[in-house]
Deep mutational scan, measured.
Amino acid sequence: SSQSQGISSSSTSTMPNSSQSSHSSSGTLSSLETVSTQELYSIPEDQEPEDQEPEEPTPAPWARLWALQDGFANLECVNDNYWFGRDKSCEYCFDEPLLKRTDKYRTYSKKHFRIFREVGPKNSYIAYIEDHSGNGTFVNTELVGKGKRRPLNNNSEIALSLSRNKVFVFFDLTVDDQSVYPKALRDEYIMSKTLGSGACGEVKLAFERKTCKKVAIKIISKRKFAIGSAREADPALNVETEIEILKKLNHPCIIKIKNFFDAEDYYIVLELMEGGELFDKVVGNKRLKEATCKLYFYQMLLAVQYLHENGIIHRDLKPENVLLSSQEEDCLIKITDFGHSKILGETSLMRTLCGTPTYLAPEVLVSVGTAGYNRAVDCWSLGVILFICLSGYPPFSEHRTQVSLKDQITSGKYNFIPEVWAEVSEKALDLVKKLLVVDPKARFTTEEALRHPWLQDEDMKRKFQDLLSEENESTALPQVLAQPSTSRKRPREGEAEGAETTKRPAVCAAVL
């Protein structure tokens, strides 16, 4: 046999249950609850290399294929790409003598399909299967379609040439079993990697079954959420508030809700932002270029202005709740996480202390139980975000031990490091100062900020419009641009040419 590394010779191994799959997660993409704000000051410096380099560890398999027929071997997927077919160049070659004697062998292509993985959001991997055969590759009886790919989820059954000719079961060793999710959700989405997690739940990458488009699904544990919100009269209202707010909003710089499922837990389906959180971008770069800050901040102002015009105060604006559309420097941003939002009543007064301390406005800290506050709290938070983006460190921090965090904020005395700000323009610093004003009545509004000289930049605004146009074009394009080929190089076993392929839609398939 010419099988590559990772293939075992026996096809009769006992199949494990899916609970053996491991679970991976990374930083929070968007969480309903406010958790302790991640610290920006503690960015690790590059460490000196050791005298002796450690040995390379043996790579762990990321997936496993269990053979369902004699003549096929099990495969431990270690590499990122595997070709399957009769050709000797394939990493998994159909060359077992037992297999060659079967009637089905002649229906398999020289290069029938490939399984591979690509880097997705949060640097996690996504597994795909890609059909290159004349007679078809099927996943859970659905045709992939020649020249098309679809994501592979845990426990997928792979069939060759005929939908009933099941050859492998695919085990993704990095994700959960699909069966743990409600059927209504599974009918519409293929669940994938964990993108982030918080005290009350997690955010998962998923794929729409009909279109193969990526989405983010925010899962909120009702049990954990009820415990964490025990002081509230009705904890469920917080989730329902977020859903109702998101459904009503329609702005290019605000995250869109696509679906909602109320089962044992809450499942909020949101558009996916491939670039992750602004927080991670700031930490990764230490600070952002001023031109990049301007492009992002302009969009934040437009989003918050839209919220305020619609009578909504976000109340928890922070870099973790600003998501980026891509890994590119120039990209769209979207505001997310409306769990603490407040729809303005007639009095415009709110007395609930919520939000993240580092970003809270002075009037929030001094008015607990005594007075109210209004939309100006969001403008203060925007000032803190702009400060961080321009400088790479927070204006107020618990680690300045000589003054408490509350006193720093209520006095408006931010930590100004001259040598850092020497590289920032006077106009940018002036806008920061106009937003970090203790008196909410004297603080800049979103309208005033948008009129500030720093943002009178036609090149930046043109760039934003171009990015918007690109997004609109990409969302308007159909996901499947061509029909699967019906040509046949070899006959199917026991049926006429093209008899099955043309009847089945290529579900969740995307043209390369």
Results as ranks from 00 to 15, higher is better:
Y373G: 05
R351H: 04
D378H: 00
E264Y: 03
E497K: 08
I335T: 10
Q408I: 08
K433Q: 01
D378P: 01
P505A: 14
I257F: 04
I245S: 12
V511S: 12
H399Y: 08
K258W: 05
M300N: 02
E458R: 05
L270V: 15
L468I: 06
L467I: 10
A263F: 09
E448W: 08
T370H: 12
Y267N: 13
L246A: 03
H251G: 03
T347H: 09
V437I: 07
A263S: 10
A303C: 14
L307R: 02
S404V: 07
R375K: 08
G498R: 15
E471G: 14
L349D: 14
L344K: 11
C508Q: 12
A371R: 02
Q479P: 14
K427G: 15
E244Q: 15
T336C: 00
K286Y: 07
F416M: 03
R400P: 07
C389T: 08
Y266V: 11
N472C: 12
Y306Q: 13
I268K: 04
N321E: 00
E274N: 12
T446I: 06
Y296R: 04
A496Y: 07
D466G: 15
P505K: 04
A263L: 07
D459S: 05
N259V: 05
V322D: 02
D466E: 05
T347P: 05
T358N: 11
R351F: 07
P478E: 02
D378Q: 00
L301G: 14
A371L: 06
E419D: 10
W421G: 11
G276R: 08
L450S: 04
P357I: 04
I254E: 07
E290T: 09
E329H: 01
P394S: 13
L481P: 14
W421M: 03
K286Q: 13
N321H: 04
L288A: 12
A506T: 06
M273V: 05
D457M: 04
D337P: 06
E398V: 03
L317I: 10
V377K: 01
S341N: 00
Q299L: 01
K334P: 00
R375A: 05
V368R: 11
E363R: 02
Q483W: 07
R315F: 00
E244K: 15
L431S: 03
R375D: 13
D459R: 08
D280E: 08
Q299P: 05
S474Q: 07
L390P: 03
F396G: 03
N310L: 08
T292L: 14
A263M: 08
K318S: 02
V269R: 01
Y359K: 02
L307V: 12
A510L: 09
E290Y: 09
V269E: 11
L272G: 12
E309A: 10
N310C: 11
M300V: 13
V364C: 05
M350W: 01
E309D: 14
D280Q: 04
T445F: 05
K434C: 07
T501P: 15
T356I: 00
K463M: 04
L429Q: 03
H340V: 01
E448G: 01
F279K: 02
F297T: 12
I254R: 01
Y298Q: 14
I255E: 05
P362G: 00
I268G: 04
A509H: 07
K286S: 08
L353I: 10
R488T: 02
C253S: 09
D262L: 13
V366Q: 12
N285T: 08
T352I: 02
E328A: 12
E500F: 04
T475C: 05
A303P: 03
D430C: 01
Y373A: 01
I312N: 07
P491Y: 00
C354L: 04
D316H: 04
L360K: 07
T475F: 02
L278G: 01
N321V: 00
Q327L: 05
D378S: 00
P440G: 12
N374I: 04
L295E: 14
M300D: 01
L323P: 00
T292R: 13
E458W: 12
H251A: 07
P453K: 04
G412Y: 09
T410N: 03
C354M: 01
S325R: 08
I257S: 04
T336A: 04
L386S: 03
I257A: 07
E244C: 15
Q483K: 10
L278N: 02
E398M: 11
K427D: 05
E458A: 07
D330P: 11
E470G: 13
L360V: 12
E493M: 12
V282N: 00
P357Q: 12
K318E: 02
E448M: 07
L295R: 03
F260Q: 11
V364Q: 09
T347W: 15
K286W: 07
S325M: 10
I243S: 11
P252G: 01
T446A: 12
G276A: 05
V304R: 01
R287I: 13
S325T: 08
M273N: 04
K434N: 05
C354P: 02
P505R: 04
V507A: 06
A510W: 13
E244H: 15
A496W: 08
A428I: 00
A371N: 05
S485Q: 15
H251S: 08
I343S: 08
A476V: 09
L353V: 10
G498Y: 13
K427N: 10
P357W: 06
Q465A: 04
V480R: 15
K256G: 08
E423D: 04
N259R: 07
S326I: 06
L317Q: 01
F260L: 08
M273I: 09
D330G: 09
S326G: 09
Y306T: 10
Y373V: 04
L323S: 02
V368I: 13
A509V: 10
I417T: 06
A499G: 04
A376H: 14
K286M: 10
F297N: 03
K434R: 14
T370I: 13
L323T: 01
V384G: 02
V269A: 09
I417A: 00
T347C: 15
K286C: 09
E244A: 15
A496E: 09
G412W: 04
T358E: 05
I245Y: 03
N472V: 12
L436N: 12
G276W: 02
Y296T: 12
